[in-house]
Computed example of a mutant assay.
Amino acid sequence: MLQGSPREKSNTNALLTPFIQGLEERGHCCQTILLREKDLRLCTACRACQRDWTIFGCVQEDDVQAIIDSVLSCDLLVLASPIYAWYCTFPMKAVLGRLCHQRKTQ
């Protein structure tokens, strides 16, 4: 689960807690990534990720690559973010922007 709230004791967290408990009660393993604690940079549109479609990655050295690796290994992805000014928060926007520029071939 990508949790995009900038606040530790947020409504987003309050909603995720019973959701996670329900999944875990049914035997699922859950991982929550608190985006507010990560070093996240916006996509710079350098297109380095598009030079070689056989690899999956970004040239920026921040925490997004580890997040992308977690996303690729999961069976279900939950995006949890409050909506500020008609859009998700900066941490979620940063990850989604970088995730959308990636492509993995199998």
Rank of each mutant, 00 (worst) to 15 (best):
M1E: 09
Q3L: 09
G4N: 09
P6S: 07
P6K: 03
P6H: 05
R7S: 07
R7I: 03
R7P: 00
R7M: 05
K9S: 12
K9D: 15
S10I: 02
S10Y: 02
S10M: 06
N11A: 04
N11C: 01
T12A: 03
T12Y: 01
T12E: 04
L15F: 14
L15I: 13
L16D: 02
L16K: 04
L16P: 01
T17Q: 13
P18D: 09
F19H: 08
I20E: 13
I20C: 08
I20F: 09
Q21G: 07
G22T: 08
L23P: 02
E25I: 05
G27C: 08
G27H: 09
H28T: 06
H28V: 06
H28C: 14
C29Q: 15
C29K: 15
C30N: 06
C30R: 01
C30S: 08
C30K: 05
C30E: 06
C30L: 06
I33S: 05
I33E: 03
L35M: 04
R36A: 12
R36T: 02
E37H: 14
K38L: 15
K38P: 07
K38V: 11
D39G: 02
L40F: 00
R41Q: 14
R41S: 14
L42G: 14
L42R: 09
R47N: 14
A48Y: 08
A48S: 10
C49S: 08
C49E: 10
C49D: 05
R51I: 09
D52Q: 12
W53D: 15
W53Y: 14
W53G: 13
I55P: 05
I55C: 14
G57A: 05
G57L: 07
V59A: 12
Q60Y: 02
E61M: 10
E61T: 12
D62G: 05
D62V: 03
D62C: 05
D63R: 03
D63Y: 04
D63L: 03
V64T: 15
A66S: 11
A66R: 07
I68M: 13
D69N: 13
D69M: 01
D69E: 13
S70I: 01
S70H: 13
V71G: 00
L72F: 13
L72M: 15
S73A: 15
C74K: 09
D75H: 13
D75P: 03
D75V: 07
L76N: 09
L77T: 02
L77I: 04
L77F: 02
V78G: 00
V78L: 12
L79F: 12
L79Y: 10
L79V: 12
A80K: 07
A80M: 06
S81F: 02
S81H: 03
S81D: 06
P82D: 09
I83Q: 04
Y84S: 04
A85T: 11
W86E: 10
W86I: 07
T89G: 00
F90T: 15
F90M: 13
F90Y: 13
P91G: 08
P91C: 10
M92E: 00
L96V: 14
L99I: 00
L99V: 07
C100D: 10
C100E: 11
H101Y: 10
Q102V: 06
K104Y: 07
T105W: 11
Q106I: 10
